[in-house]
Nucleic acid binder design. Structure first.
Lengths: 195, 195
DNA sequence: CATCAACCTGAGGAGTCCTCAGGAAATTCC
DNA sequence: GGAATTTCCTGAGGACTCCTCAGGTTGATG
């Protein structure tokens, strides 16, 4: 039996839910300003809660990151499913890639966590990463079937490219964001001109 | 006057040099196994030296990273200069890019430090990064002049691509190294076929 | 060999991580 | 309404790391 990762759940008791939500809100803010390695004691005090309470709801930092990014990544997966039936598979893929890059770089340190979660089942974010992988792979396959993306590109490679772009964007806190250009150059490398 | 960054120097006294070297050796090993955020107290004890001695020679973590990577990056810069006169500018550029990716991902966390140093003059590694930028830009310019690389690619963008590849390689500690393929895809996006 | 600058040591304050024993509050059940 | 019970909260505290600094030691120099 592989150790199943702990996935945070919104508690049933009213006070528990209140604190859970407050911690999550404080964590999102702290992650965005200080990165994934922000002080959890700060997060707790910012949420008006003792440190033990934070650890009760989120026993590991990874579980807190997972909970803080869950909604955003869920919507990304949903968007992939919506785009899957679109008329132009290449456009769909490109649009989704752009959105993915933004979501992966919500705060400093996130891409790294997601990249590791993709291949590590013992991680809270693994399930979400697997879902994203499926969504991205479907869009990729469709674009390849339409002859608009080189057929030898694998989903793993696609995510390497996405992660690279997201990482570049993550570093952009200090000025220029090279990720749009990065993505455009990458796309030139993997797409096939019409006709 | 902008605060000049501290650059570590090999001491003149024999005992100082001995410790300096021991710390550097221990740091290189620790960085490679535990990343740039390894414990400096461990590094010190591994070098057989008190923590204060480490801080005497390397007052900041960044100065230790700079010293630990100096030789490698210096040789990378030297290689760029040697390649600059080569017969095939595109080959030269590609060879240098491959080498750069390896050097940038010597240990986990290095690319991030270098990426920030590139644009932050208050950083020990800034001078080296600037030298690398010049070397890379020269090779890029030559390849562009030969009509083998898209002329709208800037050095900044080149380094974004290199850094992305290096980051992917850095994550590869846990299995597959996607950086060679990453680089090949990127190259398809930025090169121009002969004739 | 005496002088002095360079160097070394390691205790210690401050921050952070994470746990856990004891207390408080919400929910349930009668 | 009032236990009983389960869930939840608190915050002290041990372990770790960071970095500084006062005091002691040693190598280089003339």
């Amino acid at each position: 039996m592989d150790a199943k990762p702990y996935i945070a759940q919104r508690p049933k008791r009213a006070d528990g839910r209140r604190n859970y939500d407050a911690i999550l809100a404080a964590a999102r803010k702290a992650f965005e300003t200080s990165g994934a390695d922000t002080s959890l004691e700060d997060v707790a005090s910012q949420a008006g809660v003792a440190i033990g309470t934070l650890y009760r709801h989120f026993p590991t930092r990874a579980s807190l990151v997972e909970a803080a990014t869950r909604d955003g990544l869920e919507s990304l997966v949903a968007h992939a499913e919506r785009l899957a039936g679109g008329p132009d598979p290449l456009d769909s893929l490109i649009e989704w890639m752009r959105e993915a890059v933004v979501h992966f770089s919500t705060f400093r340190g996130l891409v790294g966590i997601l990249a590791r979660s993709m291949y590590d089942e013992g991680t809270p974010s693994h399930a979400m990463c697997a879902a994203m992988r499926r969504g991205g792979a479907d869009l990729l396959r469709a674009a390849q079937a339409a002859g608009r993306v080189r057929p030898d590109l694998t989903p793993e490679e696609l995510f390497d490219l996405l992660n690279g772009a997201a990482w570049v964007r993550e570093q952009a806190a200090s000025g220029r964001d090279g990720s749009p250009r990065f993505l455009r150059l990458v796309l030139e490398g993997i797409t096939i001109p019409e006709d």
